[in-house]
């Protein structure tokens, strides 16, 4: 079996998942080859991490367009050899134009209404989430398996992670892990970051707030607001797993970084996910099942938010909640079953 693995951009969540799954697939029996093709901002992720990839040359804003379908089709047609399977991480239109069996991986069904045909054409669909949060459309239920989020389990301990990242050994470390900045998330990022910095005024001087954004992005988001001396803008990084492990607590906006922190037992505070969003539903779901995750309501004062962060930061790391978590094996079996 040769696997053509397609990875969507629009942030780095799909690329990070691909980087976890694709190399693992390549080691499974009967898999001769796995090649990655990346769309939009996923290209930056693979370039940064050194994983070989083909650039589909599809900008993020067009990744569910006819143009994207054309680029995907041309790429797949350029691939030689029989016994091919396409695994597409959220490039949903791939199933319409590929001439091989197709496994679609999705975090949600937010694209379903805009393009039910693509879901209907896929041979298998893996929901990398929980069906309690993301109800499966009736028309495709028979081909969907909810496998849970696919996230890396970090074996490293906190002291090692801090040493490698040059973070203080004993001080409080908090990471504002909002994901890759993306223009459509501007308001959301700005509000969450403003709330965090307001609360951070109450942090001890030796504490460190890690912000995985560039200083320019932070300046653009916050205007003239000066960052405190104990905030470190480390820029977008492929070492988020390690920053999470190094932190006493992780602050998220409810996206994939939340799943990673929770899966690894790291205390987490979810900051103001927009009401009704997928992120909000995931945060509510996890908050009811996970002792080390709290979420704000958006009405907290700076002091209240700091108290939540401080309390979270002094919570011991715990075992992850007893939930289904997806693995590369789930993808492998789906690909084999097509």
């Amino acid at each position: 079996m040769r696997i053509d693995y397609l990875s969507r951009g629009t942030g780095w969540a799909h690329a990070a998942r691909t980087a976890l799954v694709a190399p693992a697939l390549a080691r499974r029996p009967g898999v001769e080859e796995v090649t990655i093709a990346a769309s939009g901002s996923a290209v930056d992720y693979f370039a940064m991490t050194g994983l070989p990839y083909h650039d589909l040359r599809v900008p993020d804003e067009l990744d569910h367009s006819g143009y994207a379908a054309y680029r995907i089709r041309e790429h797949l047609r350029s691939r030689d050899g029989a016994d091919r399977v396409v695994v597409s991480d959220e490039l949903c239109l791939a199933s319409l134009v590929c001439e091989a069996p197709c496994v679609l991986i999705v975090c949600s069904f937010r694209h379903y209404d805009a393009g039910p045909e693509a879901f209907g054409t896929a041979d298998r669909i893996l929901l990398a989430g929980w069906s309690e949060v993301e109800p499966v459309p009736e028309a495709i239920r028979s081909k969907v398996t909810a496998i849970g989020p696919i996230v890396r389990v970090v074996g490293e301990d906190r002291p090692t992670a801090r040493r490698v990242l040059d973070l203080p050994k004993d001080a409080l470390v908090v990471t504002a892990s909002f994901g890759l900045f993306y223009p459509t998330k501007r308001d959301y990022f700005r509000d969450a970051l403003s709330a965090v910095l307001g609360a951070w005024r109450h942090a001890p001087a030796d504490a460190v707030l890690v912000i995985p954004l560039t200083s320019a992005t932070v300046r653009e988001l916050l205007g003239g607001v000066a960052l405190p001396d104990n905030a470190r803008c480390v820029g977008p990084t492929g070492r988020m797993d390690r920053y999470h492990r190094a932190s006493n607590t992780v602050l998220t906006v409810g996206g994939s970084t939340t799943s990673h922190a929770v899966r690894n037992g790291i205390p987490t505070v979810v900051i103001n996910p927009p009401a009704g969003s997928v992120e909000s539903r995931y945060a509510a779901f996890l908050a009811g099942r996970c002792d080390h995750l709290t979420r704000t309501e958006g009405t907290e004062s700076a002091q209240d938010l700091w108290d939540m962060i401080d309390h979270s930061a002094h919570t011991a790391e715990l075992a992850p909640p007893d939930l289904r978590w997806g693995t590369a094996d789930d993808v492998y079996h789906a690909a084999r079953g097509t």
Partner: peptide, 17 residues
């Protein structure tokens, strides 16, 4: 290829299938 309107883009998708 200059930007296509959503209507033309959708026709292209249909054509590709």
């Amino acid at each position: 290829l200059l930007p296509l309107s959503p209507e033309l883009d959708r026709v292209w998708l249909a054509l590709l299938t």
